[in-house]
Each structure stands twice: as structure tokens, then as C-alpha cells.
Amino acid sequence: METTEQIRERILASLPGAQVSLVTNPGLAAQHSLLLGAAHALQAALLLRDDAALRLDFCSNVTGVDWPEREVSEADPTAPGGKVKRVVPGFLEVVYHLYSVALGHGPLVVRMRTANRSDQVTLPSLTPVWRSCEFQEREVFDLFGVVFAGHPDLRRILMWDEFKDHPMRKDYVEPDDFEWEPTPHGDVLERARRHYPAPARPAKEPAP
């Protein structure tokens, strides 16, 4: 298969004006990915599927990643102390892993990002391109709260319909429903302390 950079150029040649950037993977696996802008994502996906040299006809895996807002410190010689703190806004990310059954290559990793984590969470659905996205995009909608425009049946898939939260987000607070557990595990003991406040000091020790 062509390198990710070549595929990016191929997309840009067919879709001038499309936002496609390369996201390098610093890990040992070095599976680099393409970040697609939401505006042209559907056309780019069709191109990836139908281009004679790529023919990525098999979308294997679709998943979401939550990137909450975080603070990074960057080197800045002008600032006092030589460092400046900057807040990176949070976003939700959807990752697609594409393979080609016809040509036997892959994976190509494609990502899309929302503008933020609260109100601008709509991304185009790629279910019209690959049918296998249908349930997996529903799962991303359910667990991460990404809304897929153009999805044929966007409902919660794993949790019940009345459920309000998106549990795979990093800031999800789960219901506090395990009361006590006899383990020395630090978190669990902390919970136990919260549920069972220390008993009031007895007035007097009863005589034996």
C-alpha cells in the first residue's frame, strides 16, 4: 500500500480544498493516520473506498477517543521562567481502521475530530460508505456522545434509551452503588469510608 503521505496527496489531488492532515504515531507500531476535516470526510471516504489503487472496501474498526481539555507547559524564552502554560481545548475523536479485502492491504487509519466536547459534537456518518460502521457508530454515539449526521438509525445501542450520560468519557462519574467490599484496595477503602462515617465515640466503655 502507498504511504499515508501519498494517500493524503491522492485525496488532495481529487478533492482540492479538503482538509487532510497527517497525524504521526510516535509509537513502535508507527501506524500513522489521516485527519479528515468534517466538511469533506464523506467524499474522501468514498474516494478511499473506490480509488482503483486503494480500494479500501473493508472498514474494520470504528471507535471513539475522548480527549478532555488539558494544560500543557511549553518552552517559551520570553516568558518568566522560560515556560508558558497553555490550555489545549478538549475534543472527541472518531478513529476508523480501513483495510482492503480486494487488494489485501491495510490498515489505513482515518480520524475525525469534533470542535469541542459539549455542543459541537456532530460529525458526518460514514455508514453510507461502509455498512460496518452502522453499529459501531451507534456505539460511539452511545458511549462518547458523538452525533453522526446522516446515520440511518442513530439510537443508543448498549445502554438503555433513558440513560443520559456518555460513560466512556474520561469525566464520567459512575453511580455510587457499591457500598462495601472487603479488600485492601485503596480506592475501595476510600469509598467505604465515605459510606460508613466513623462511629461516634462511645461515652463509656461498657464493663466486661
Binding site: 438503555w160 434509551d161 433513558e162 440513560f163 443520559k164 450520560d165 453511580p175 452503588d177 457500598e179 462495601w180 459510606h195
Partner: peptide, 18 residues
Amino acid sequence: YAAHDLDPTKNPQLWQPP
């Protein structure tokens, strides 16, 4: 089914926390 959890979360006649 409720918005965050089941309602009720337990049957107090059957089960009480230890």
C-alpha cells in the same frame, strides 16, 4: 430504567449493605 442508574437501585427488604 432511570437517567443514571436503575430506580430503585436495590430492594431494601431483601438486601441491606453489610
